[in-house]
């Protein structure tokens, strides 16, 4: 179809590089990310440790690679859960309308009244900390906003000529929803997914920064930043590396989403 804008490609390259870096981290890290080494405590940047070592003498590069992996896992799981729920609810309520729409949208409105971090905090308070609970809580927190976007698109499409034509051509409701309408709203969906992914990354980082996400000694970008904050006076570099990876990842996806949206106009 149409060519994507340069913004999209800059974002794609940026996000691709960070993803590649983190993907490598899934299989190989220069050191064991959890191995402590008292002699290397807060060691600075060197050729052996390109990002230095933390307060327990663990290699920061290895921990960034490992922590990024769990960030990706949580963000990916969140988006999958949230978008899956949101698309189904949004498609049904938007296309069919009626009582189901009224009831489901009331619930969505009530859920939207809780900002996502707050909702995640509630769920964590109820279920306890840990990766799976964070995915569950963020997934539930994100579903309403996906449902909103998808519902709007289906509601708009419902009255378009081609949908009416499809009904007259004998297509079933299921076919209209997923064969006729869905391909036409894919760019909206993709940019919603990208934005959702970014929010998930940021929320996961926030939760583990607060100490209620991934639990130590496992690394996570958020918890690494929380640890680094203690040494902000003496070792400011310690917070720069995990922060930079986080920012580059989010920036990359953000630019991609932006490029898609402007390309659509």
């Amino acid at each position: 179809m149409k060519r994507q804008s340069t913004t999209f490609w800059i974002g794609a390259v940026l996000a691709g590089m960070v993803l590649l870096f983190l993907l490598v981290g899934c299989f190989w890290t220069p050191y064991d990310p959890e191995a402590m080494n008292a002699s290397m405590k807060l060691a600075g940047v060197s050729s052996a440790h390109p990002m230095g070592c933390d307060a327990f003498g663990r290699d920061v590069l290895s921990r960034v690679m490992d922590g990024g992996r769990s960030t990706l896992l949580v963000a990916g799981g969140t988006v999958l859960l949230g978008a899956g729920l949101g698309i189904v609810i949004g498609a049904i309520t938007g296309y069919f309308g009626g009582l189901a729409d009224t009831i489901l949208m009331r619930i969505v409105d009530a859920l939207l009244a809780f900002p996502s971090v707050l909702l995640a905090l509630v769920v964590v308070a109820l279920l306890g900390t840990g990766e799976m609970n964070v995915i569950l809580s963020l997934g539930i927190a994100f579903a309403p906003s996906f449902a909103r976007v998808v519902r709007g698109e289906f509601l708009r499409s419902r009255y378009l000529g081609y949908v009416q034509a499809a009904r007259l051509a004998g297509a079933s409701h299921f076919r209209i929803l997923f064969v006729h309408i869905l391909p036409n709203i894919r760019s909206v969906l993709i940019s919603a997914l990208l934005i959702g992914f970014n929010n998930a990354v940021l929320s996961e980082a926030a939760l583990s920064y607060l100490g209620i996400g991934v639990q130590p000694p496992q690394a996570s970008l958020g918890s690494m930043l929380a640890d680094a904050q203690t040494y902000l006076f003496t070792e400011p570099l310690l917070c720069i590396f995990p922060g930079a990876v986080l920012i580059l990842l989010v920036l990359g996806f953000g630019l991609m989403g932006d490029g898609l949206r402007t390309g659509r106009k």
């Binding site: 378009l160 000529g161 009416q164 034509a165 007259l168 051509a169 004998g170 006729h180 036409n184």
Partner: peptide, 15 residues
């Protein structure tokens, strides 16, 4: 299956 031809041919064909 009664059929219709709409005024706006652009929007009545699935893009």
């Amino acid at each position: 299956h009664p059929q219709i031809v709409f005024q706006d041919a652009g929007s009545s064909l699935n893009p």
